[in-house]
Structures are given as C-alpha cells and as structure tokens.
Design a protein around this nucleic acid. Sequence first.
DNA 1: ACTGGCACTCTGTCTGCGGGAGTGCCAAGT
DNA 2: ACTTGGCACTCCCGCAGACAGAGTGCCAGT
Lengths: 340, 340
Amino acid sequence: MSLDDRKLEVLRAIVEDYVETQEPVGSKSLVERHALGVSPATVRNDMAVLEEEGYIRQPHTSAGRVPTDAGYRLFVDRLSKVKPLTPAERRAIERFLIGAVDLDDVVHRTVRLLAQLTRQVAVVQYPSLARSSVRHLELVPISTTRLMLVMIADTGRVEQRLVELPEPVPADDVTDLRRRVNEKLAGQRLADTPPLVQGLVDDCSPGHRATMACLASVLLETLVERSEERLALAGTANLTRGGVLDFQGTLRPVLEALEEEVILLKLIGDLEPSKTRVRIGDENQIDNLRSASVVSTGYGPGATIVGGLGVLGPTRMDYPGTIATVRAVARYVGDLLAQN
Amino acid sequence: MSLDDRKLEVLRAIVEDYVETQEPVGSKSLVERHALGVSPATVRNDMAVLEEEGYIRQPHTSAGRVPTDAGYRLFVDRLSKVKPLTPAERRAIERFLIGAVDLDDVVHRTVRLLAQLTRQVAVVQYPSLARSSVRHLELVPISTTRLMLVMIADTGRVEQRLVELPEPVPADDVTDLRRRVNEKLAGQRLADTPPLVQGLVDDCSPGHRATMACLASVLLETLVERSEERLALAGTANLTRGGVLDFQGTLRPVLEALEEEVILLKLIGDLEPSKTRVRIGDENQIDNLRSASVVSTGYGPGATIVGGLGVLGPTRMDYPGTIATVRAVARYVGDLLAQN
DNA sequence: ACTGGCACTCTGTCTGCGGGAGTGCCAAGT
DNA sequence: ACTTGGCACTCCCGCAGACAGAGTGCCAGT
C-alpha cells in the first residue's frame, strides 16, 4: 500500500502539531487545526495505515499518535519546505559575527549564536588541521634546549608545542632551522607534509640532524597524526526546555555524550557533501542519543569545507527552522573566514 | 543557648547520614547508626535546639531533619576532619597528569580528572594573564599589511592576535620591531606593561610610529585590558547523579550558570588566600546556584598563584572528600607547572 | 471512498484510607 | 538538671477505586 497525498498531508500535520504541542495528536484536533477537508474518521483510517507503515505510533491505546523516527525522516526528506529566516534573524547573525577579533572569538560567537537562534545545543568544530595548509612555522627559543614551535595555518588556527631539544642550539642555528622548515613546508597542506618532513631530516647536515629529527617528530606526532580537532559547545541548558519529557526521563546519557569529543566529532564531522545533514534518533548510531537528533553541515571559505558545525536537540524538533538556521550560520561563518 | 559537644556531634551525624542516604534523618535511625550513647528522645531534644538555631530543618512535620546551609557551614568549619586521599587516588592523579604535552593538555586533563575524582562538575581556569609575565613576543608576517602577534607567557599560555597594519612593512623592519618590543617587554609582568608599551610608541622613529601604535593598541586592548580569562569545564553529566532530587527539580538554572564564563570566574576566581574556599548555597551570591556549593582553590608553581580551580555540586555534598581532592589536584598541577 | 455513530480502552486525576515514620511533650527516673 | 520511655499526633506515601475525557476501531449507511 503506497501513501497517497492526503496521507502524507496527515503525517505532516501530525509532525507539525506534535512538535508544537508536545502532546500526542488525535484525529479530531487534527481536522480542527488543519483544513484537511475530510472528517476525523477518515483521518483515523489514514492514521491506521501510517502506523502500519511505521511512520507514527501510539504511546498507548487510545492516546493520540506520535511520529516515529521514520516519520520524522519522511517529513524531513519529502514534506518540509525550507523556512526562510526572518530579517531579524539575519540581522542577529550579522551583528553577532562582526567584530570577532580572532579565530577563537569567531568560533565562540558562532556557537553561542547557534545555540541562541535554535534554542538547542550547538557544536562548532574549529577548522580542521587536516584540511588546513601551513602558512608559517615559527620557532621561538625558550631556553637553549627548548623551543616553542608555533604553527599558523591558513584557516587561522594557531597551534603551539614545546620541543625539548637533545642538545643546546645557538640562536643563529634556530634562524637557519626556521628558514629551512618554512621553505619546505609553508603553503603545503598538512596532510601532505609527512614525506616533506622526512625529507627535511634527511637533507640535514649531520650536526643538526638530531635536533631536526626531534622537531620533525613533534611536528608529525602532535600536528599531523593525532590531528588535533577542537570543538566548542554551547546551549546545554536548552536541553531542559520541554521539561524532562524529551530525552525519556534523564538528561544523563545526553550530557555524557556531549562530554566526549570523539562522539561530537562523529556527529558533526562528516564533511563530504556540502549538504546539510540530519540524523534522527537511532540514525546517529549512538545509544546515548537515541532520543536526539543532530542537524549539521560543513563550513568554510568559498566552496571548500574546513570544519563542521551543527546543533543537537530532541527528535521532536523544528526541523525546517533548525536546518535553515544551521545553513545560514554556516554560510555567514564561511564568508567571514574568506575575508581573512 | 550554646551548643554543647553532643549537639555538635548530633549535627555532624545528621550531615554525614544525609549526605550518604539523601533522605531526611530521624532520631531513631541516628542513634542506631552512630554510637551516641543516648536515647532517641534525647537526640530529639537536641534536634529541636539545632533547629531553633537554624542549623537543621524539617521538610515537613513528622519527617526527619535535613541540614540547612548554616548547618553545612558549621560542619565544614568546625566538625569535619580532613579526609586523606587513598593511595589509589594519588596514583590516579599522577597517572593522569604525567604525559601532558601542552598547557591546553594540562588544563583539559586536570578538569577531567577533577570531575572524575569528585564525581561533580569541575572548573579549571587557565593561568591568568594578569598574573603572568611575558616570556617572548613574536611577530609573524602574514602579508605585507598583516602581522600575527604571538605572546608566550611564562605560565605557558600562548595568545595570538591578528594585527592589521596601517601601511606595508618590509620584513627587515618587522625584525627590528620584534627586537625592540622584546627588549622592552620580555620578562615583565603583564600588569606592568601598559606604561612600557606607551614608551615604545614614544621612542619610535616617526617612520614606524603608526605601525607601532597599531601594535601597541592591539597589545593593550586584547591582552591587558580585557584580560582574557579562559576556562575549562567538565563533568556536567554528574549533575544528574542523585536524580533530580538535588537542585530542587530542574538542572536548568545550574546549566545556565555554567554557561556564563563571568559567573564561573567569580566562583573559582578569588585567589587571594592560598586556602581552599567553600561556598555553600546562597553564599555564592548567585540565584541560579542556590542549591549548589562550590569548593575552590588557587594553584600555581611554588607559592605563587596563577589561576583557580574547583568543583561545583549539590549543597548535599561530601565536603571533606571534595576539599581534600581539590587541594591535592591543585598541588599536583602546581608542581607540574613548576617543572616548566 | 467517505462519514457518522457507537462501543471500547486506556490515561490521568482525584478521593479516601491505612501504614509508617517521626515528632513533641510529659511525667517519671537517676 | 538531664535523660528517658511512653504516647498521642501529624503528615507523607502508596494503593485501590471511581470517573471524566480523549481517542481509537469498526461498522453500516450514503
């Protein structure tokens, strides 16, 4: 049995009402609130079919219907229209983002903005090192046997590591090292650096070989291999909106998941397509987030993508609005990055 | 009427039992669990006095007693003995903190460790810039009209800002600027720099005056005036332990407070004495945190203090254990910083 | 294919009713 | 002057029963 247009219309109405009222929706109130042009009895028949097909369910006999994950999925894929942002929202975004002095600042403002606009939990990934290129490497002598290695990436990220040297190195040699390292690596994508770094060590005069090897290993280990992703999070208090009704009783599992960077990265960090991605309930593959949905997208200057951002909320969420907001914020942030 | 020893003993027993069981404690169960050597009736009389004095209260007639904020205060000040850490805990601390590569890493490990050991929300302040000295200032040319200013502080903090120059500056001049800036500022406490920075501008040759002024203003504005405090937070999921019983029903206000850096700084950022500080309920002066207590202390290499750390939990918390852990972690972190 | 009607089911709420825990007070004992 | 056992009292909590309300499924009629 396929679903005719009216049944789809009924599903949409159920989702919309349920999202708004947070209560199971019955046939009678449905026809009252939406001009469906048919009687409650007809709607009931449609509902029976929708339930059969797994798009809605009843919490208990003789309660109204509630969308299932599959129902939300269908709604998102086929039934929802893009909801344009209000001018007020656009202005809010602009006002919030101009005046950021710093990559840190941009990220923090963005995450707070997202949380505020969507009234949900927001996550923003810093531009990924793996997708960045080296703009400059700086070596700052801290003592004769210690260097601070500072890497500045084209995405604005700045990372630093302390390097313990095997032997004292005079200042002139540091200058030389700096020049050589930059000649080789500046402008390169971080992902392409490992062979180049190896080359640096090989080409090195025996006198500095040990020092350079040390530098190289720090570079590889901490910047490339364990490719240091950073995240910002905001709006956890929004989880408590709608009482404890969403999230089946306790926030605990959700809060726990939000503490795990690995999990968050998995949630927002699939940057392949430039499309916005919606993961509903079980779809995000994490037990703790069964009753949560994630709307995420990539951002970056121009068409390239350097990081992800998104929001997390109850499966019962305003998908069209959230999707529109996430997209808009991502675009603004991308533009902002492009200016630098 | 003053409180004799037995009444204090009764108060201590009430606090201990209530913290453990989370239930109002009655006279009968008290004498059963603690060898007080008197009958329940006597204890009841003592309780009446303690209630009169405001140290305990009854949730309702004919329920057991529960400590008030004042009761906890008295307990913390006079009744609790320091609870030494177990060897296992000491080992956990050491294992957790060695192998930190980075200030960021140290802070993150510390905050997670604190959250885990105390099973509460942990907050760690990065070493305060206001309490740091300049180790080195680096100027990295990004383009001819843009510099990246990187400041490395003796506490390990590294801050960077983009500086837009009023006019193109050739590389040699950058070298010169760098030398001059470092000569003047390296080794100085950040708090002392403003007049020195002004001096730098004044002493500058007219040709570079504009550039230096620009640099100076970035330095002053973003590093000194708005003295950039950073924080790390972990363990919010621990708020859900003990159900929604603590925190009078909703986590909302607490989560909201935890999102405000300003509030968190106020909570853990009173670094004057080297003593551990306990703020119970209303004492922390924040409406949202009426039902929360904060245990905080300063940390730093040796005797100096460069930042604060602490934990936040329900007023019904294991104070002796928490205090001991917070202190121990602060000491270990201080030692770790001293090594750099 | 849609609709009105009807019986049925289930929830949520309110009520009333012990059981239990704990208190306050009092009179007696040390 | 404390301390103690006894006792009446209060109030919470849990449970069972009743009831209204909402919503459904089904069926017969159009």
